[in-house]
Amino acid sequence: MRPFTYVRPPDVDASLRAIAERPGARFLGGGTNLVDLMRQDVERPAALIDIFGLPLDTVEELPGGGLRIGALVRNSRLAVHPLVRERWPVLSQALLAGASGQVRNMATVGGNLLQRTRCLYFTDHTAGCNKREPGTGCDAIGGFHRNAAVLGAGEHCVATHPSDMAVALVALDAVADVRSVRGSRRIPLAELHRLPGETPQRDTVLAADELITAVELPPSAVAAASAYRKVRDRASFAFALVSVAAAIEVTDGVVSGVRIALGGVAPKPWRAREAERVLTGAPAGEESFRAAAAAELAPAVGLPQNTFKIELARRAVVAALRGLTEGSTA
C-alpha cells in the first residue's frame, strides 16, 4: 500500500470540503473494496476522507410508505430491517446473498453501490486492462472471462458489476441523494452506473467529489411479492454468475405490474425493461416468462467462456417469476 494522508472530518459539510480541497482524495466507508484495492495497488488515493463515523446511518420511513436509507447503513443491518423484509423482500434477500457476514457487517449502502466493476485482470498489474490503465487493452477478452458481461459490454471492457444489493435497488426504482460542495442532486439508481463505452475507467456518473448521502426507496405495491435469485459456483461468498431481482403482481391471471433487474450479466445492474414490457398485460405463466426472458436477452453477446450466461439468465428469470407466481398463474 502506498502512503496516503488520512482525515476524519466531523460532519458531512466538512467532508465535502475536505475532498474538494484534495486532488486524488477518496471517501472511505467500510473499506471492504477500496482498502483491498489499495493493498493491491490498484487504487492509489492521495488522501482518504473517512466518513464511516458520520451520522448517515439511519433508516427512516417516508410519508407515503417509502424508505430513506442513510448511505452509511451497514448491509447487515439493512438486510434485517423489519420494513425492508416486509415491503421490499427482494432487497433483504439480495443483501444476504452478497459477500459474507463479516463483510456485510462493515460494508455500507453507499460503498456497496460504488464498489468497482471488475474482473481478474483488473487487479493484475501485468495484464492489459483499460479500466485500470486506459489504453492498455482488455486481456480478459482473449483470456479468462467466464464471469464477464453478455449485455452492455464492449471491446474495451467486459467486466461485471458485482453488487447484489444494487440489482435489487435498480429493480425497485431507488434514487440516490448526492451532495458535493457545488450542491445536491438526485440520481435514479438505474442511471448511476454507466456502460464502459470508450471510458471503462469510469464506473458511475458521479464526479470525484460527490458523496452519496442516502438512497430512497419509493413505495411499491408490486415489491411485496418480490425475490432475489442468485446463481453461483458455491453456496456463499461468490459473485453471481447470473442473478435476478424480480417483483410481480398478477391480477386475474394477467401481469399487472412487474420489475426485473439482472446481475452478473452486464457492467452495471441491468434493469430488464424489455422483459417488463413484454410481460405487462400478458398472461402470467411459463410461456410469457420465457418470451420476456428471451426478449431481454436477445441482444446478448457471449465470449467463448461466458456464452452459457445467456441461457442461464433466461432460465433464472423464468425460475424467479415462476417462484413468485406459483399458485396464482394461469
Binding site: L120, D124, G143, R234, A235, S236, F237, A238
Partner: peptide
C-alpha cells in the same frame, strides 16, 4: 490469474 481465496473457490461451510 486467481491467486487468492476470493477467486479460487474452496468450499464454504454452506457447501
Amino acid at each position: 490469474m486467481n491467486p487468492g481465496l476470493g477467486e479460487y473457490q474452496i468450499p464454504v461451510h454452506a457447501d
